[in-house]
């Protein structure tokens, strides 16, 4: 640790946190989302970006995939075959997350990134971990704060820094339009249950990052719990009591269970065929990772809440709309089979 400490002391005086000024013109209105440790090179010289976690990986990939050094999460397997081969085959680098890091700092140095970017709700733990990495490596570290609601600004701000303001503006427009759907929702909001895990009995509590899609699509979280928190387990008895109008999931195992297990058949949402299995390729529509990939989920859910029922024509329509999103954000237009195959039910 002696080496680290000397390094630390040496850098202490020179480098302090210098929050970047918001890049947007309406700076007065926008929130302060960026926290920067170190000095960024000018946008034209940002060629090598290291994403510290999966949400940042998605954000950087949508804005400037050519700058991405590798993936913080594994992109092997069926799930990521949607991503163009050149990007899918980028190395799996692991994540930087304080104690939970799976990337060695030396590997980080060897990669020589121009900037490290992390996205997520920023708290002091994250700030101090980022500061420390910057102090140890001298690489500028950018933390992007905010929830899904802030995604237009996140896209714009990061797009500016990566030197792709035009592309960022396009994506931000899509995001803004998507986030606007909530204004058209009626006052009487249907309740939606997010089923996670193989049993479908893990869920996000109201206000959690996991259920942002439900809230932003104009649904009401079926879970009636006052206390805040993130994920929790519930029981079927509670679900029977809460009577969700709709169940959404990304877990194929649970979806199968919900169709077959006797106990689930008593829920009106299952009886009325209001249980939907959403794609998680290449990134989830509801969750996993919590990044801009969820915008398409908001669009889908808002539409489904306003026009309940599932018709074959809906699936086709959705395959088209989703393909538009994939084209715009992921630079690839998948065939209908990934949205209407056996692995999803939209």
């Amino acid at each position: 640790m002696g080496m680290n400490r000397r390094h630390f002391l040496g850098l202490m005086g020179a480098l302090t946190a210098t929050p970047l000024l918001p890049a947007r013109a309406d700076a007065a209105e926008s929130k302060q989302l960026l926290h920067l440790f170190g000095d960024l090179p000018p946008p034209s010289q940002v060629q090598r970006v290291l994403a510290a976690g999966a949400p940042a990986g998605v954000l950087v990939y949508t804005l400037a995939p050519e700058t991405l050094l590798g993936w913080p999460m594994s992109m092997q397997g069926e799930k990521s075959r949607v991503v163009p081969e050149a990007y899918r085959n980028l190395p799996y680098l692991g994540r930087l997350a304080g104690r939970g890091s799976t990337m060695p700092l030396e590997k980080l140095l060897a990669l020589k990134p121009d900037v490290i970017i992390d996205v997520g709700t920023v708290d002091d733990t994250y700030l101090s971990a980022a500061k420390r990495v910057h102090q140890q490596t001298g690489i500028p570290y950018l933390l992007v704060d905010g929830s899904l609601e802030d995604s237009p600004q996140q896209l714009q701000d990061v797009g500016q820094l990566l030197g792709v303001p035009d592309r960022a503006a396009k994506l931000a427009t899509y995001a803004e339009k998507t986030l606007g759907v909530i204004d058209t929702m009626p006052a009487n909001r249907p309740s939606v249950y997010l089923a996670r895990g193989p049993k479908g009995l893990e869920t996000g509590l109201p206000g959690s990052i996991n259920t942002e899609v439900i809230a932003l699509a104009g649904g009401r979280n079926a879970v009636q719990v006052e206390s805040g928190g993130n994920l929790a387990q519930v029981s079927l008895e509670q679900l029977l009591h809460w009577q969700p109008d709709m169940i959404v999931t990304q877990s194929a195992g649970f979806f199968e269970l919900a169709q077959s297990a006797a106990a689930w058949q008593h829920l009106p949402a299952i009886k009325n065929r209001q249980c939907y299995l959403l794609p998680e390729a290449p990134f989830g529509w509801l969750d996993g990772p919590p990044s801009v990939n969820r915008l398409v989920g908001i669009n889908w859910l808002a539409n489904k809440l306003q026009n309940p029922g599932s018709r074959r024509s809906d699936t086709k329509l959705w395959a088209d709309k989703a393909a538009d999103f994939y084209q715009l954000f992921y630079g690839t237009r998948p065939g209908i089979d990934i949205f209407a195959g056996q692995t999803v039910r939209l």
């Binding site: 999966a54 994540r95 939970g100 996670r196 193989p198 893990e202 994920l231 969750d287």
Partner: peptide, 15 residues
């Protein structure tokens, strides 16, 4: 647990 997706799989394993 280290390899699992922290937003989807890790909570399931923990539970």
């Amino acid at each position: 647990k280290v390899l699992a997706d922290p937003s989807v799989q890790l909570p399931s394993i923990t539970f």
